[in-house]
Design a protein around this nucleic acid. Structure first.
Lengths: 111, 111
DNA sequence: AACGCTAATGTGCGTCACACACTATTGCAA
DNA sequence: TTGCAATAGTGTGTGACGCACATTAGCGTT
């Protein structure tokens, strides 16, 4: 397997789970899927649409997001918002992330 | 699903891939699996043995690690060491990690 | 000498997130 | 009125990880 493919593979594994946390953080302000794609991309979390939509439905099923169809405007859009449980989880995961960050620091310092 | 289970689930996803990077960094100095478990644990990367061993063999098959059986001492141990390709990948993944870190910073600053 | 404990490595199965390829509908602009 | 972009969804495969289990060998205790 060429080196670039290998990197892509492991990079994907490394980013795993971060999209969930990013969504929970961003969706403290309600937004709909397609616009969320842009927001994520702007912050460096590039995701495919076909990855994001199932993810949003998963999070809703887990009670971390709530959703409402906005039918006021011409084009109907499904707005998601981080629930209270979602906010709690986002806080917990942020702490976990920070711990991993220190863990890597302690590894690099050890060279 | 209770909140604790949910947290455990997402936490696992978030940590995914970090073990690989941690191993590549630690194994710049050769070491064997069982001792590596300790080193990882001390740095905050707690892993099950039955997770680590297949991982090491995967990384070896991908050419990121090399291995030698040490039969000098009474108990035979398989020593792993990060290869040149492994070092290169570790550097690349470290950069990826730092980018994700900044990405999260820019998210939190935006509240 | 028999027993059990720990060191040390390994395997098989299930689960879950994510990528990839695809479908479906609707509003707006050329 | 044709066509593109916005918006949402599905189905299938793959790969990492956890869990439970298996295996061998040296060490200490009784």
């Amino acid at each position: 397997m060429p080196g670039d493919e290998l990197h892509a593979l492991h990079q994907q594994e490394l980013r795993r789970g971060t999209i969930v946390l990013a969504c929970l953080l961003i969706l403290k302000r309600p937004n709909y899927g397609y616009a969320l794609l842009d927001r994520l991309d702007k912050h460096g979390f590039t995701v495919e649409a076909n990855t994001l939509y199932p993810l949003l439905r998963r999070l809703e099923k887990q009670g971390l997001l709530t959703s409402d169809w906005n039918t006021d405007e011409s084009r109907p859009r499904k707005f998601y918002r981080t629930s209270r449980a979602g906010t709690a989880l986002a806080d917990a995961l942020s702490r976990d992330w920070d711990e991993m960050y220190s863990a890597f620091q302690s590894l690099k310092d050890e060279t």
